[in-house]
Design a protein around this nucleic acid. Structure first.
Length: 562
RNA sequence: GCCCCCGUAGCUCAGCUGGAUAGAGCAUCGGACUUCUAAUCCGAGGGUCGCAGGUUCGAAUCCUGCCGGGGGCGCCA
């Protein structure tokens, strides 16, 4: 049975219609190929088509001539000259002019007509602009948060939640079929310990040495009336904790999980998923018994030591469950597994890859995305986050203090592999200066402008652009904004492929800055002649949509007014 | 000892599968509101991209070594 998500995911259905930039890139590659001697083949991957930092270098720049020079057997600048001529012939009126610069870059100055046409295509793509660009759509399972249900979620989980949620959204929009799951560790001795701790608190007795403390244990105390057995009490508590986590995550803007996968369910049934997996491993001859325990020979697959699957006391290790879960995902049809795990799990990659290989799978289908830590800082000092001691900033507190939008942006704007210092006092103080508001403000401003223009005028403006009506020469700020909008599909693709939501945040900020420059330089509503107003209204619509999409990918709201 | 991440402006961080004069926000200083949203904008100062080699036409980016910071290496969960 498959539980691959089947509900509508517009992104997955959007055809990867060639974006304006794809078209330009193809022409560059074609012009480059023409220069190669017969049978010559140069790696097109090394050829870049990018927006130069400085406006003097044009709208786009390519290093193709530098890459080709050796194969062609001519100096780079000579190759660049011929490449420019070839491109010029192919682009015709779309190209204003080209220049050869530096060691052999070809800088392209696009004609206004090309930019207008490109914007028209952006708008024609509608809400799906930039979606569906995945070269090979895959069925991907993103497992994230997976916080132990023995305590509240702290800021580390908040980071994991924001990242996993955003990553899942990006992958879906990029064209993959994405499932999202939360793995609940409810099968270990910790659950019993939680039960014992609650029982102790309820009875007014001291909590066991290695038990759980904190307000949340106090709040769970009433459960002690429903169950006396610590194990049973622990299970009740886990159910309550999971409920709480679901509520907190929804409040944090995390879309509902497709499944909450209970570890205990991997032990249910006959044969259980774990038994099934262990049998498979044994069949392939990768397990052995020693010292009364069952081991997996992970060293055969590159791990530095073998790992225990079943302890000498008969209990399964977490590793055994993890393998069973991975196998379960594979059998459910997921071609790729992305596990968003904490920094303390980085050492697990070799053994997990080994396990998948031992099962006859492709280790490459499992990616561990290791989130670096969130350090709590208080007046310059590192604070320890200890769950057992009950001292930590919870996800709920974070949201309460600085709000969902600021919190998510704060956690998502930096790479997941960078350690984050969080000073809650500072974050609270500075939340007003969070970049997220700059981006949201741009969105609200556009919304306000378009409201002023009126829906009818907007429709008219879009129709005029679609009809290819010309206008006055474009202002540099208009060009800058259009070029930025054209970059979106490639930005999204790179962010998705590199599992890097922070790139979307960086892009959104740049887009908002480009819009603001455009707003500063170009009158929109009331601009004369009407054709200019039309074009600018259309440009605003595209900017607004794209900003909204970016914010949506980050799980941040796109307000109509601020 | 081995493994992972980080080291870029005063601070927080982008840029890292090689490109041109290394960017942004915050902070500091100086300016701009009869204006489609000033939660904004303009300008200024601020850098041995941790250090040293190497590869290359070209290195913040790739390779090697070192230094500094954080984390991890259980028949724990």
């Amino acid at each position: 049975m498959s539980d691959i998500p089947t509900d509508d995911q517009p992104a997955a259905q959007a055809t990867a219609a060639a974006t304006p930039l794809d078209g330009l890139r193809e022409l560059v590659l074609a012009a480059a190929a023409e220069l190669l001697p017969a049978g010559g083949q140069e790696r097109s991957g090394a050829v870049t088509l990018e927006r130069p930092r400085q406006a003097q270098f044009g709208d786009y720049s390519t290093n193709a001539a530098l890459v080709l020079a050796k194969a062609v057997g001519e100096p780079p600048r000579a190759v660049a000259e011929r490449l420019g001529e070839g491109l010029s012939a192919r682009l015709g009126d779309a190209l204003e002019r080209f220049e050869i610069a530096g060691p052999g870059f070809v800088n392209l100055f696009m004609a206004d007509a090309w930019l207008r046409d490109a914007l028209g295509r952006v708008l024609a793509a509608g809400e799906a602009y930039g979606a569906g660009g995945a070269r090979r759509p895959e069925r991907v399972l993103v497992e994230f948060v997976s916080a132990n249900p023995t305590g509240p979620m702290h800021v580390g989980h908040a980071r994991n939640a924001a990242y996993g949620d955003s990553l899942a959204r990006m992958l879906a929009r990029h064209g993959h079929q994405v499932g999202r799951e939360f793995y609940v560790n409810d099968a270990g001795t910790q659950v019993r310990k939680l039960g014992e701790s609650i029982a102790a608190v309820a009875a007014g007795e001291p909590v066991p040495e290695d038990g759980y403390r904190g307000d949340y244990v106090q709040q769970l105390a009433p459960l002690a009336q429903q169950a006396r057995d610590p194990g049973e009490l622990g299970r009740l508590a886990v159910a309550a904790m999971v409920d709480g986590m679901r509520t907190s995550l929804l409040a944090f803007g995390v879309a509902e999980f497709d499944r909450w996968m209970y570890e205990s369910s991997l032990h249910d049934g006959d044969p259980s998923a774990v038994a099934h997996t262990l049998a498979m491993l044994a069949e392939h001859g990768h397990t052995y018994e020693q010292d009364g325990a069952l081991w997996l020979r992970t060293t055969e697959f590159g791990d530095d030591k073998d790992r225990v699957l079943v302890r000498s006391n008969g209990e399964h290790t977490y590793f055994a469950s993890d393998i069973a879960y991975a196998e379960d995902k594979r059998e459910r049809g997921f071609e790729r597994q992305l596990n968003v795990w904490g920094a303390d799990h980085h050492g697990y990659l070799p053994r997990m890859h080994a396990a998948i290989a031992a099962l006859g799978g492709d280790p490459g289908q499992l990616e561990l995305l290791i989130m670096q830590l969130v350090h709590l800082v208080s007046s310059g000092e590192r604070a320890q986050m200890s769950k057992r001691a009950g001292e930590f900033v919870t996800l709920d507190e974070l949201v309460q203090e600085i709000g969902v939008d600021a919190a998510r942006w704060y956690l998502l704007a930096r790479s997941h592999e960078t350690t984050v210092d969080l000073d809650l006092d500072l974050a609270r103080e500075q939340s007003k200066e969070n970049d997220v508001y700059y981006v949201q403000y741009a969105h609200a401003r556009i919304a306000s402008m378009l409201a002023r223009a009126g829906g009818e005028r907007e429709t008219e403006a879009l129709a005029a652009l679609a009809a290819g009506e010309g206008g006055e020469p474009l202002h540099a700020s208009e060009r800058g904004l259009i070029v930025r909008l054209l970059a979106f599909p490639a930005e999204l693709a790179e962010a998705a492929e590199r599992r890097a939501p922070h790139r979307v945040a960086a892009y959104a900020l740049e887009l908002a800055q480009d819009f603001t420059a455009f707003y500063r330089d170009c009158r929109v509503v009331g601009a004369e002649p009407a054709a200019v107003e039309s074009f600018r209204i259309a440009l605003c619509v595209a900017a607004r949509r794209t900003i909204a999409v970016c914010l949506g990918l980050l799980g941040v709201s796109a307000p109509e007014e601020m």
